[in-house]
Nucleic acid binder design. Sequence first.
DNA 1: GATGAATGAGGTTTCATTCAT
DNA 2: TATGAATGAAACCTCATTCAT
Lengths: 191, 191, 191, 191
Amino acid sequence: MPRHRFPNTRERIEKAAIRLFVERGVAETTVRDIARAVDISEGALYRHFVSKDELVWRVFEREYVHFTERLESLARPEVTARGKLAAMIRGFCLAHDEDPWLFRFLLFVQHGQLTRLAPGSPTPVDAVRDVIAGGIASKEIPEQHPDLAAALVFGIVLQPVTFAAYGRLSSAVTSMCDRLIAASWAAVTTV
Amino acid sequence: MPRHRFPNTRERIEKAAIRLFVERGVAETTVRDIARAVDISEGALYRHFVSKDELVWRVFEREYVHFTERLESLARPEVTARGKLAAMIRGFCLAHDEDPWLFRFLLFVQHGQLTRLAPGSPTPVDAVRDVIAGGIASKEIPEQHPDLAAALVFGIVLQPVTFAAYGRLSSAVTSMCDRLIAASWAAVTTV
Amino acid sequence: MPRHRFPNTRERIEKAAIRLFVERGVAETTVRDIARAVDISEGALYRHFVSKDELVWRVFEREYVHFTERLESLARPEVTARGKLAAMIRGFCLAHDEDPWLFRFLLFVQHGQLTRLAPGSPTPVDAVRDVIAGGIASKEIPEQHPDLAAALVFGIVLQPVTFAAYGRLSSAVTSMCDRLIAASWAAVTTV
Amino acid sequence: MPRHRFPNTRERIEKAAIRLFVERGVAETTVRDIARAVDISEGALYRHFVSKDELVWRVFEREYVHFTERLESLARPEVTARGKLAAMIRGFCLAHDEDPWLFRFLLFVQHGQLTRLAPGSPTPVDAVRDVIAGGIASKEIPEQHPDLAAALVFGIVLQPVTFAAYGRLSSAVTSMCDRLIAASWAAVTTV
DNA sequence: GATGAATGAGGTTTCATTCAT
DNA sequence: TATGAATGAAACCTCATTCAT
């Protein structure tokens, strides 16, 4: 019955979908669930998205690329590897606290979207790995497998978010940010 | 004349299901997929499991509890917090390399099974957190939020497995075990 | 300031619709397809037609009746059955070459419209059959079932159009007209 | 409720579907219609056919190829072009009277299936055209465009079936067979 | 015990039509 | 008056589960 109530239907669909995808999983979220959350008919969704699959992919890709670029531009001005790493970790924390649903959608739900990225597309993992590789090259970081080091940093940063999702930790990740930076640096420099 | 071609049908179902759940996700795996993988009819599956849901849950619970106990019994003989933590991390790595599909099923797929555990059931997270809390109490580990510390250890141990799943790291996690122990200890003791 | 960019929107809709109906079928052509082909909005279509169904029917009826009358008036001045038949076949060929889409829409697509014609409405089939019946009465054509004879003529005239649609024959049907007349006469007079 | 009542579900589906496709058109026939006609559930259909589209295509291709071969093998033993043509036309009539629904499905409904045939697959049209081309080569038939001649024969044979479908002619096409043969020969030899 | 056709609820998608703007 | 987002019924299809054989 209500028509044209909100001009930004598309955005509202994306927001609702992301949240549902995180809460229940992509497969477990029906198009009807999304439509209900936005209070439009199921059919109306299809004026904004070609298919459920395309909705997932479009949002994922756009935001994933955007997030990667954001990380990269945070690291760029920094000079030392430590500075770059710290800036990126801060970027993770801020991104999470700004929009926890989106953050978790991008980094946990994924749902096989990762494999659909154009081969060679830069990812947050690459961004972190490259900074570490640079630090190794400049002797700031001891010699080691850069991918393993990147895994350590990723784990240190993401796992608290998972714990937060289960209520084991506060969901204000930014408040732990300095600790995560310190822990990451310790993990990376301890061989 | 053997009634069953394979006497251990039930085990074979579980093994195949776990693998499919990890590869595609639980919702994306159909009962038909599982039946085909085991080369029995769909109907025959229901002689071994009440429902798909029950299959997921039964396997999850049994193995999750088992894994938790294993971790606990590895830690028990150790005296120091560091020794306990190292033993547990070694336990993670061994468990992964013994049966990577099961490991990933328990620790990544989950699919909301975690929330179905009887409240108060011990989990690997609890096991790690308790050891850390003990270390803090005995002053071996500096004062800090034990859940956050547990998150750091979990992240450090699990993220390399994720990277391995994407081909970024070798899937022989045991070979990285000492490094993971060192990194965990560094992360936990650096405040 | 012109209210409409094109004053003949209605005609343009009909033309585009007919072509789409022939190319894809009536059911397979969506209102959106038609709107896009005419470059107007879907809603605007409904200012010109009550419904898709009505669009099909209105165009069909008007043109079918018109085509029938045209055939009849071509035959009327002729005296002999052979002359009448030749004039009508020439009418078919001309009608096709003037507007092949319309011709095929009327004679092939039909889509059950035929059964909606008012009972007793004259059709091209009737026109041909009547001429043949007249020829039989006047002994110009040997005694036979006039409907079967009409079927022969119809088949001889329409099948080349079908072949043309599949690229098996040139779509300039008029160039084959004399041949079709001769063949029809031969078929009708050979018992 | 009823299960396994008839062993030949697949055949029954095909028969019912073909009839519905002819009566209403392919697009206008829903999967539900077919299921109801066979008295099974919609879902059950999908154990026998991958999709509605595949059902249409599978039946069409199998029967179309079969019908073409049948025509060819009827013509083969005959020596003269006239004999071959007569045999084929008799083949058309018999095929129609044996199973009018299938005949009309193959030769009228088509629904764009024709374009999906492997390029170069022999069709009834080719069979007739080849016989005519042979007759022209052997001087039995006067010089002319063999495709046009084939169109004449096709029209003469198929149009009575169309008339029969509309009740204008008896649906016992075999009874008109000799007439159709004579008319075809007259049409083809009259240049 | 095993089989796999059948069920039926529910999911995704399409599309003729309406109507607020 | 034209637009196109929205509706809602209905289409196609999937899949966990049942059950006659």
